[in-house]
Simulated assay, not measured.
Amino acid sequence: MQQSHIEKAHVAQRFAKAHQSYDAHAIVQKQICQQLMQLIQQYVFARHCSQTNVTHALEIGCGSGRMTHLLLQHAQIHQFTLNDLYPEIQQHVSAAAYPATQIDWLIGDIEALPLPQRLDLVLSSSALQWMSDFPALMQRVQQSLIPQCYLCFSTFGAKNLQEIKALTGQGLNYLTLAEIQNVLNETGFDVVHISESVQTIHFEHPKAVLQHLKATGVTASSAKHRWTKQSLAQFYQDYQQFSQRNAAGLSQYTLSYHPIYCIARRRL
């Protein structure tokens, strides 16, 4: 269940390089943020109206700030601690835009940092798949939450970027929905919602697939993978197996995303 091979410094470097291009290219991640926000509204805010007034929230892996801004549009948060691996992300959230919210930064590997305490909301979108020890982090998150308060997150499952893994052998070892649910149950959470879907996006050429991954920083999983002219040509050729004809009869190349959504409440 551990992702011991993940090199966090390399992940930080790749995402820092991509942070300017990420927001324009991370189309699926944007949709995932919107879906997660809908689930938070449905399972947290709609059922516990006082939760729209949050005393202290923590976001793990805030990245471009998309999820941060969505939450701040739907909830009054008095103190909001934002975490990510690299300091460049601080430019994406302006404290001046949210004068009623105290924004604190927690820069670095969340698995190696002390967590804020007495939290009444912890959220994360498209980040927890990078954790080396998901159960250990969930145990610490559980201890940092006030009883009956919520952990809300999206992560990715085994079919995520399955085309890339099939051709290069590069990729993360994703937890299944059942494994995530078991971890949460064992660490003192009641799972009030968990679901998954597979979304496919299309590109005109396999080269555009790689450009998309680079622009979103996802190549961070390939620390030791180096492309050569020959290996690129082979990759383009092999990617033909993932091509389809569109309505105009032109070839298009698929890339799969496999989001998993979870809303969990800390037990007493």
Rank of each mutant, 00 (worst) to 15 (best):
F242K: 02
N246A: 09
A233C: 09
G169T: 11
R266C: 01
F45W: 12
Q35I: 14
H92P: 04
I260R: 06
F153L: 04
L113A: 03
C49Q: 12
Q91F: 10
T216Q: 00
L213R: 09
A223K: 06
V209W: 02
G217F: 06
Y98F: 09
S125Y: 04
D109L: 11
P114T: 09
S125D: 12
V192I: 03
T176Y: 02
Q20H: 11
H92M: 05
A24M: 01
A75T: 08
S256G: 06
I32E: 04
Q29D: 10
L151Q: 02
Q29L: 12
P147I: 12
Q2Y: 08
P114H: 10
D23Q: 11
Y43I: 06
A95F: 00
C149F: 06
K8E: 00
D133A: 10
D238L: 05
I260W: 02
Y261G: 12
F80G: 03
T254W: 13
Q34E: 10
R118M: 10
L115E: 01
A16F: 03
P206H: 04
S21R: 06
D109S: 00
L250W: 15
T219G: 01
Y150T: 11
R66T: 13
K224P: 13
Q143V: 10
I107T: 01
R47I: 07
S221R: 13
T254D: 08
Q170A: 13
A247F: 06
F80L: 02
C33F: 15
A100N: 14
F242Y: 11
I6P: 04
L268A: 05
P99D: 03
F134I: 09
Y239W: 05
I263M: 02
Q142N: 13
A16S: 07
R226I: 10
Q34H: 14
L85M: 13
H225M: 04
V54L: 08
Q244G: 12
N182M: 13
